[in-house]
């Protein structure tokens, strides 16, 4: 029950209750995403600076990327974001079972993303490419920067996916015990915002790390 107070003219005013403030929770989540945007923004600025310094090296290094695995992960993440959006819509419509199924599908796809990522990194390690590896140190300065940024960015992104998976199990628990329901679904909705943000970062990782190697330039 929110508190109602009256001004001198006896007009009623509702006092926002901090325990039950959906708009506040939404704003809080967006602010958190801004900090995330600035965090990843820092890496993207670093990328921009080194891309400018070592353009040809970056294009060359990008040719080492496995486009099939990268593409697969892009599609996986895209569908997972779609599933989570569906989960929210079904929850709003009080179709809890369907909502839960879509949430479980999102978890499965997130785990699939990590597995693909594992194979992708393993392949690179297999080629002797990891930070500070002898092979990498033998390559150009630009390749060192490219892979330094690649491992940092995809590593941090992967960490966000893993934290997301943990959080999804927590959300699932809340759905199960009824704390998230058709009337109160802000936690689920906020988590979907986080997941979309993680997806958004990936959308920009793809062109900058995977696709530049396919250009006809930079081969000289």
């Amino acid at each position: 029950m929110s508190e109602i107070i009256y001004d001198k003219n006896n007009n009623a005013h509702e006092v926002t209750d901090f325990n039950d403030d959906v708009e506040g929770a939404r704003q809080g989540m967006w602010l958190f995403l801004f900090t995330e945007l600035m965090l990843f923004g820092g890496i993207f600025i670093t990328y921009a600076v080194y891309f400018f310094d070592f353009t040809d090296d970056f294009v060359q290094a990008s040719k080492n990327m496995n486009l099939w695995l990268g593409g697969l992960n892009t599609v996986i993440l895209l569908i997972s974001a779609g599933c989570l959006a569906m989960s929210v819509v079904f929850m709003k419509a009080n179709k809890v079972l369907e909502s839960k199924r879509f949430l479980l599908a999102t978890i499965a796809l997130a785990i699939a993303f990590i597995v693909v990522k594992y194979f992708e990194w393993s392949a690179e390690f297999h080629h002797g490419i990891w930070p500070d590896s002898p092979t990498l140190r033998g390559m150009s300065d630009g390749a060192n920067m490219y892979f330094g940024l690649y491992f940092t960015l995809t590593g941090l992104h992967g960490l966000h996916i893993i934290l997301g998976i943990v959080a999804m199990f927590w959300v699932l628990g809340k759905v199960n015990n009824g704390e998230i329901n058709a009337k109160k679904f802000i936690v689920l909705e906020n988590f979907a915002l986080y997941w979309d943000y993680v997806h958004l970062v990936w959308v920009f990782v793809v062109p900058l790390f995977y696709m530049i190697g396919l250009s006809t330039g930079g081969a000289h």
Binding site: V59, Y197, S215, G217
Partner: peptide
């Protein structure tokens, strides 16, 4: 390279816009 990067970033921005406007 310039053309590829430009096209790719335009595509990424359109996708980003769709995600932010509708999914978020």
């Amino acid at each position: 390279l310039e053309g590829t990067l430009f096209l790719q970033l335009v595509l990424a921005s359109i996708k980003g816009f769709l995600i932010v406007a509708y999914y978020m």
